[in-house]
């Protein structure tokens, strides 16, 4: 495993720690999109089905279990925790799941490496992950009040895929058999979706202010 990949994973993990920290310490999930959290949970469930039939490393297994458990944990807080659930922006978080889930499912059925149940589900998870942040970005645009932790959460989530791109470039040159065109295309789309956010995030950071969206 190269340093880009490790840094990417740590950035991903850190973004989840931030969100749990925000919810736990402030007992609030204001500004967080439950739709995005549900989509990520669906991503992890469909991708990590391979926990049942393939083993790569202890590191991978532990990380997969952490991602699964934490995404269900976040959802539990937002849905059932007495105080946290009252802070959820239900009226603003109106993005419909099917707008993303259906096209990703159709695309996974058409463009995949192999037409098998596990492979199509895996491909679906790759496509869905690329766009799962959209409800969160829409919510951000609507509410405009972005607290520091939410801003940092989205920043590290975006940084994770950007670091993965560096990891893919590195592996492309060092491992001749490593060619994952589907993943690369989806990863580029995913990182691209953050471009706008990154721009405003860095601008606010440079000015020493809280994140402000136009």
């Amino acid at each position: 495993m190269n340093l880009f990949r490790l840094a990417g994973d740590m950035s991903h993990l850190f973004s989840i720690v931030l969100i749990l920290l925000k919810i736990y310490t402030s007992k609030s999930c204001a500004g967080l999109s439950m739709k995005t959290q549900e989509l990520y949970t669906l991503v992890f469930v469909t991708r990590y089905l391979d926990l049942f039939y393939s083993y790569v490393s202890l590191y991978n297994t532990v990380m997969k279990l952490i991602f699964l458990a934490s995404s269900f944990g976040i959802l539990w807080y937002m849905r059932y925790h007495k105080q946290v659930k009252q802070t959820y922006d239900r009226e603003q978080d109106t993005f419909r799941h099917y707008i993303l889930v259906v096209p990703c499912a159709v695309l996974a059925l058409i463009v995949n490496n192999e037409l098998s149940v596990t492979e199509v589900l895996w491909t679906f998870s790759i496509y869905l992950e690329a766009v799962a942040i959209l409800p969160q970005l829409v919510l951000l645009q609507r509410t405009k009040n972005v607290d520091n932790l939410t801003g940092q959460y989205i920043f590290f989530l975006g940084a994770y895929r950007a670091l993965y791109i560096l990891n893919w470039i590195y592996r492309y040159w060092t491992e001749p058999k490593y060619r994952q065109y589907l993943v690369w295309a989806a990863g580029l789309v995913q990182t691209g979706l953050y471009a706008d956010f990154f721009y405003y995030y860095l601008k606010s950071w440079q000015a020493g202010e809280k994140l402000r969206l136009p």
């Binding site: 990949r5 994973d9 991903h12 391979d50 393939s54 790569v56 490393s57 991978n60 990380m63 997969k64 991602f67 490496n113 192999e114 492979e119 895996w122 993965y164 990891n167 058999k177 490593y178 060619r179 994952q180 065109y181 589907l182 993943v183």
Partner: peptide, 10 residues
Amino acid sequence: DSLASTKDEL
């Protein structure tokens, strides 16, 4: 050997 057989990323 499928191109995507190495699913060693997260």
